[in-house]
Simulated assay, not measured.
Amino acid sequence: MLLAIDAGNTNVVFALFEAGKILARWRIATDPRRTGDEYAVWLLQLLEIRGIDRTRVDRIIISTVVPRALHNLDVLSRSYFGIEPLIAGQGNAAYAIDIDVDEPRSLGADRAVNAVAAHEKFTGDLIIVDFGTATTFDAVDFNGAYKGGIIAPGINLSLDALVGNTAMLPRIAIELPQSKSVIGRNTEDQMLIGVFWGYVAMIEGLITRMKAQIGRPAKVVATGGLAVLFDKVGDLFDAVEPDLTLEGLAVLAERAAS
């Protein structure tokens, strides 16, 4: 059984794979100060609740964009599972794709893993939209090469900045506006329209510009927590793959084992 760990800026996601399928997944807020022992107390209890013996875990792979978190996840793997973890992008878990940008080493592990997973699942040129702490747009060509992308503020970051820098605007939830009107009749509606439909306009505009620059038909694959919400708008995406990063880690782990 494979334990895949994806440490992002907001959450660390743990997923158990069996026979190539996700058996269980859990998430915890990212905190670089959290020790391997603290991860173990939390994770081992969750395994017990699901009736899963920790000894069934025989492989671990870690991807992180938070360097300080890696040591403690390594301690968790070695001390509580007796396993030397694979690290995405390193050694036997190398991405094995061409990262065709000015500074290949600066590419975040999550984006590289997404490129691996998307190329494994789809043919042709791809645009991957990942809704995380930041919203990223990545171009992957028909050969699986990573060609570059865009980094935009995540929608929750944008909302936090709006509310945090104004005296009278309330906190609102990100959701699909109930009214079809884009002229709000109260403060909350006006904020939701601005944030939600403004974000949709950004997504549409950037995808259109990327497709024009690619110059060939490109499938748009969305992932991340808010992908399902924005998929309700219409035909923004050709596919929504909520577990794309985790599936990419599973691909790397399988390649390392072969």
Rank of each mutant, 00 (worst) to 15 (best):
I183V: 15
L162Q: 09
W26N: 08
G194A: 05
K147T: 00
Y80N: 04
G215R: 12
H119M: 06
A115Y: 02
L73E: 00
Q213T: 13
A118S: 12
A40N: 12
T187V: 11
G184L: 12
F14L: 00
L159P: 00
A109N: 11
E120R: 15
S158P: 05
V228A: 15
G184M: 12
G124R: 12
I5F: 00
A161R: 10
S63R: 09
G148K: 01
K211R: 15
I172Q: 05
A115E: 07
Y199L: 04
I127H: 01
A109Q: 11
D37Q: 14
D231A: 15
R78D: 04
M1R: 06
D141G: 08
T166W: 12
D6F: 04
F122N: 06
A239S: 14
V41F: 13
G20F: 02
F230R: 01
Q90W: 09
M168C: 07
L252M: 09
M1C: 05
N156G: 04
D243P: 06
A134I: 06
L46Q: 15
A93Y: 06
D110T: 04
V251Q: 03
E103C: 06
P32S: 12
S258G: 15
L249Y: 00
E48K: 15
R111S: 06
L23P: 03
E204A: 04
A253V: 01
I172C: 05
V182L: 15
A115L: 09
W197I: 02
S181L: 09
S106P: 02
L44R: 11
V12H: 00
I203M: 03
I5Q: 01
T223R: 11
P32T: 10
I60G: 05
L169K: 09
N11A: 11
G144A: 10
